[in-house]
């Protein structure tokens, strides 16, 4: 019998996943502070849906339930999707999205380790295509908004779709800067006039730019903990910045500057939490650079020329398709083999 090595020293899958959840907390905290406690309700709903569907699917597939529920991968999918959709959305939206992500995008492919696509992004894409109106209605950050919703108001809206009598939905929500930018540019407005709109913040969207900063801190933690390497975030953000910089240099009146693109939409969030999903991503160092750079370029192109305000989900899914190819062509040189 030969079962060496007899010693191992690796964090378990559970502890890796838990650290990812931990890294999301600063972002969630700033999110809840700026947009109200409604996100917490969405997160709870998402978590419950994820665990329930995962358990049912594991049972149906005759797989052990307990070890796979306690790996927390389903919870990560749930949280990522919950954080990606608008905070004021009816309860069934997140339930449908998470259920689709877990059942179709994860379990039907074989569960943990076998899903070729990022489940959270599949869930997001399905929701965006199916319910485009709800998915693009983002509330202005409450701390800056004139109309404020209490936690109970948000609770009621999520579950019964009812707002307090004197408040209309339009008063609460507004277009996101990326969305606004796109429509205004179509109306032949120049960047100078567009960017004075109140929804613009210091470098990105008012409010959400701080959430992005909190995600950045969480990402730094993951890097420090060696859960992620520098390749994916750097290449992704670098590609967005390079694309934005190029277009901005060509015509600053028609294209937003790179910093705006880095801190708008899901750039930071995606760089540290979406692209870094190891299962659906490439494994070689070079491959990670290509994968993330490709996703960055596509994200930018969808933002500027596409039909949706942000393009992260489509970019990631498209690049997921390319992963086997990328991995195959980016094999590192084996020790002693020709240079």
């Amino acid at each position: 019998m030969n079962r060496s090595p007899y010693i191992t020293n690796a964090p378990s899958v559970s502890s890796i996943m838990l650290k990812v959840l931990l890294a999301l907390l600063p972002g969630i905290f700033v999110y809840a502070w700026l947009y109200g406690g409604g996100i917490l309700i969405t997160l709870v709903l998402a978590t419950a849906t994820a665990l329930a569907t995962e358990a049912i699917m594991l049972k149906l597939r005759r797989r052990p339930v307990q070890p796979f529920l306690s790996d927390y991968s389903a919870v990560i999918t749930a949280w990522l999707l919950a954080l990606a959709i608008p905070p004021l959305a009816p309860w069934w939206l997140i339930v449908v999205g998470v259920a689709f992500a877990i059942i179709i995008a994860k379990q039907l492919y074989g569960g943990l380790g076998y899903n070729p696509f990022n489940p959270a992004m599949v869930g997001y894409a399905v929701l965006l295509i199916s319910f485009p109106v709800i998915m693009t209605k983002w509330p202005a950050a409450l701390s800056f908004a004139e109309t404020k919703l209490s936690f109970m108001d948000q609770f009621n809206y999520i579950f019964s779709h009812a707002l307090p009598a004197n408040i209309s939905m339009d008063a609460v929500t507004s277009a996101t800067p990326l969305d606004y930018l796109k429509t205004q540019l179509k109306l032949n407005q120049s960047m100078d006039t567009i960017q004075v709109a109140p929804i613009f913040g210091v470098f990105g969207a008012k409010g959400s730019e701080f959430v992005a900063l909190a995600y950045l801190a969480g990402g730094a933690f993951l890097w420090q903990q060696r859960i992620i390497t520098w390749h994916l975030p750097t290449a992704f953000l670098g590609a967005i910045a390079a694309m934005a910089g190029l277009f901005w240099m060509i015509d600053p009146s028609q294209f937003a500057n790179p910093v705006f693109h880095l801190f708008s939409g899901a750039s930071i969030f995606a760089a540290f939490f979406i692209l870094t999903d190891p299962i659906s991503g490439p494994t070689t160092p070079k491959g990670k650079l290509y994968f993330a750079a490709g996703a960055g370029v596509i994200t930018y192109l969808v933002r500027v020329y596409g039909g949706y305000p942000d393009g992260v989900a489509f970019a990631v899914i498209f690049m997921n398709i390319c992963v086997p190819l990328i991995d195959m062509y980016t094999q590192p040189r084996v020790f002693g083999h020709k240079k």
Partner: peptide, 13 residues
């Protein structure tokens, strides 16, 4: 402990 599926984390690589 019982082996879990590979999550392609590439620590081995």
């Amino acid at each position: 402990p019982p082996a879990m599926p590979c999550i392609r984390c590439s620590r081995c690589a």
